[in-house]
Design a protein around this nucleic acid. Structure first.
Length: 221
DNA sequence: GAGGAGATCGTCT
DNA sequence: GACGATCTCCTCT
């Protein structure tokens, strides 16, 4: 494995997010989600995401219009939307499209790249733990590993390293991208809006429980 | 390994 | 008061 070099990481530009969430979701695969600035960085490669299409998507938080909770989704693109779920977990999304449209992408799984011991600590796991899939696979776990909370991070700029939570491009070519139905939802559950890297061991579930159907979309080498 | 159930609390109706 | 874009632990096979 090549040693990560944060000096070469470039923040993703704002215009990257000013597009259809399906396109943003696919293009986010292989990018890095980074916590911190300067030293003591924690970073994970994005290997699994889900697209939510805004007010026309019955499974999206934005479906019933703006509320105090989801207001970030209706604002500018490239912002963190953090919500609390099941009394236990925070989940991180990034807003897409121009203000008024409420598309977003949910981060479902990361492959730990940098600051793994700090992630293990944040997750309350044994520092000698070798099953790294348990660190960031599943939407609640990256938030815990990177200490993302609604109070601290909701609405911040994911395009700006100064915010302390940002998305970087290190030039990684991600290989084959596949799509399947989204996980854990009951409405609009059949649409293939979950995207992941084929064969990557850090993907939370290789196939959706609701449907085994997987479509290979494209290959980037 | 698979499946089920409990934990736990913010948000919405 | 009901529900939820989840996780973990426990039991069963």
């Amino acid at each position: 494995m090549v040693k990560p070099n944060p000096q070469l990481w470039r923040p993703v530009e704002l215009k990257f997010f000013d597009r259809d969430p399906r396109r943003v979701a696919m293009d986010l695969l292989g990018k890095l989600l980074v916590r911190g600035r300067g030293v003591r960085l924690r970073a994970g490669r994005i290997v699994e995401v889900e697209a939510y299409l805004g007010v026309e998507d019955a499974a999206a938080h934005a479906f019933s219009g703006p509320t105090d909770r989801n207001r970030v989704l209706f604002g500018p693109p490239g912002r963190a939307y953090v919500y609390f779920i099941y009394g236990n977990h925070y989940c991180l999304n990034v807003s897409c499209q121009p203000p008024g449209q409420a598309g977003c992408v949910l981060f479902r799984a990361l492959q730990p790249v940098l600051g793994i011991s700090a992630m293990l600590r944040a997750r309350g796991m044994d520092p000698r733990e070798s099953r790294l899939k348990l660190v960031c696979s599943g939407p609640g776990r990256p938030a815990e590993a990177l200490e993302i909370t609604r109070q601290r991070d909701n609405g911040i700029h994911l395009t700006d390293p100064a915010s302390g939570l940002w998305i970087a491009d290190d030039g990684f070519r991600c290989g084959e991208i596949a799509a399947s139905p989204r996980i854990g939802i009951t409405k609009a559950a059949e649409q293939p809006l979950r995207y992941f890297l084929t064969g990557n061991p850090f993907v939370s579930r290789p196939r959706s429980p609701a449907s085994p159907k997987i479509d290979v979309l494209e290959t980037r080498l």
